[in-house]
Write a protein that binds this DNA or RNA. Sequence first.
DNA 1: CATTGATATGAATCCTACG
DNA 2: ACGTAGGATTCATATCAAT
Lengths: 359, 359
Amino acid sequence: MNELKIPFINEIAQGDCVQVLSQIPSKSVDLIFADPPYFMQTEGELLRTSGEVFSGVTDEWDKFENFQAYDEFCKLWLKECQRVLKDNGSIWVIGSFQNIFRLGCLMQNLGFWILNDVIWNKSNPVPNFKGTRFCNAHETLLWCAKSKGAKYTFNYKTMKFLNANKQEKSVWNIGLCIGNERLKGVNGKKAHSTQKPEALLEKIILASSKEGDLVLDPFFGTGTTGAVAKKFGRNYIGIEQNESYVKVAKSRIEKVNIVRNELSTGALESKPPRVSLKALLKAGFLRENEKFYNKKGEFICTLDGDEKVSDKEESLSIHKMAAKVLKKTNHNGWEYFYILRENALSPIDELRYKYNQFS
Amino acid sequence: MNELKIPFINEIAQGDCVQVLSQIPSKSVDLIFADPPYFMQTEGELLRTSGEVFSGVTDEWDKFENFQAYDEFCKLWLKECQRVLKDNGSIWVIGSFQNIFRLGCLMQNLGFWILNDVIWNKSNPVPNFKGTRFCNAHETLLWCAKSKGAKYTFNYKTMKFLNANKQEKSVWNIGLCIGNERLKGVNGKKAHSTQKPEALLEKIILASSKEGDLVLDPFFGTGTTGAVAKKFGRNYIGIEQNESYVKVAKSRIEKVNIVRNELSTGALESKPPRVSLKALLKAGFLRENEKFYNKKGEFICTLDGDEKVSDKEESLSIHKMAAKVLKKTNHNGWEYFYILRENALSPIDELRYKYNQFS
DNA sequence: CATTGATATGAATCCTACG
DNA sequence: ACGTAGGATTCATATCAAT
């Protein structure tokens, strides 16, 4: 195995994003979350309807000459991200309409493969004070595999569990980062102008990483990614240029308590053991010529040899036989068939778990 | 005025999109809605969980060699759209993650100015059958002015009215086009693989066009844009290559009934008449040294000359005076002040409407 | 007629571990 | 790396038949 010496693990590297990235070995990171400058192109002051000045993003780090300069900057850090990402890793990038189309186009051109564009639908957005457009109530996240056809981690069942046991969709309703969660500077003002809510990072990390994975955030800010990574038992690397952000992030992450549960460990993703009929027969869990019934107790077919079942017309796998009965193309035979034990129906699905336990 | 001879008004031009566009005069169109091919890049067959083949988009018109070919195609029709659009017109483009980032980037590069990216959040999306990603439950619309700083139509109050009198946001919850609305071919199958819901076009047209405006759709399909344009008293031009789509669209639009109400006419957008205090005084609606009260009947200030009001400290406009009392920078004085008529408080806001009516 | 249940379907970048 | 067998996977609506 290649023992890569990866620097900055569970640390914050203060410095230029691309320069620090260049020190990280290729294919060493499982997950990347990037919240780059949005290049908002705001001009002048925006007044609230009350007449106060709205405190938006006016930071120096959000200023670029033009689209071309912004594109070039993004191409640099995106290429480095692609290099440090493991072949089966994935990357999330967040933006809004000012920059996300440039990022998406760039990423496609670089060979990233978009898995989803996820909409962060803000439940409490800043209104459009002047009534000149629709209230901009969302931001867009791009979730990409390293390349077309590349593998990636997706904890489908964990996401489903967190969504009232329904398949999670591409639109997420999450509130802004406000209240106690919003980090304040010594002056009582927000410490960072674009701090992301932990709920957003929790979903991202639980969806697309495993316990012990390494999560990289090249625009670490006040460290939401690091805090959530630590909370759920992931490792992190933070890169941040601004010293005051680094300071805030460090003390924040120190205070984080680790949570270990079925969500963070990926326990919900476990798959049933792969056991063959042959093995079950050999171990005595199935009998020769065993009769298979459906849930209602209707006789369907008989074990034929040690691999297939027969309905006297033909010999098929349990899956194909279940599908045949249901007039479908595919069906899971383990879930369809029952056998008789002590005059009662017993699901064959239990057998593979028992076999796995006792062997 | 320039009397442009615009062809194809309230007709469907059958032919190549760019070729037909080239026949339309520059700066002649108020609104464009474009639903181009998405370049879905699907491969092979997708099976439903039941084992049946899912009938997605396999049309020839959605096939392109690669991103470059797609980009070049889009650049051509987008440039023509920009040419035919009036300086104060706007354009909507719809897509999903396969193509929208390319379109957005292209449009920014061409000088279009993004006003909003609007999310069509589908209430009943097709699930992800295999559980491999988040269910793709939305599409993205780009709404752009012709250039930075260009004017555009936005019927803010109409949108607010339709959203339970709250400012409309950038995420719209709208269902898929199904049921009776979905046009069927003679075989009973969907006539077009990607027919858009009328609810979507209704919102777009009511938000960003005026009665009598000309709405262009360069990818007309089965004519949802034309049907909704006609319904709300707008003119349309449809461009569609496929003869069978044109046929369906024509008969569809013929059956459309025109609806004329406060939404379609833009009546909700009317602004209060601009009347000066001087004019009100001269016409006798205000008296010399008239006393101004707040809603509670508390005396606030006195008419000072014929342009300002005075609280004995200073002489200000009614707006600045209202703001001063409320300790704000700005406030609408017309809505704040009342006068005494027949021993009752009467809003001064009424005066400018009365003046307008009788003069 | 109201209710229930089975079936159909919608812009889709839709499997993976093992040999 | 590549082919193949095993087996895991769906939500909201509309329609229509059956009760």
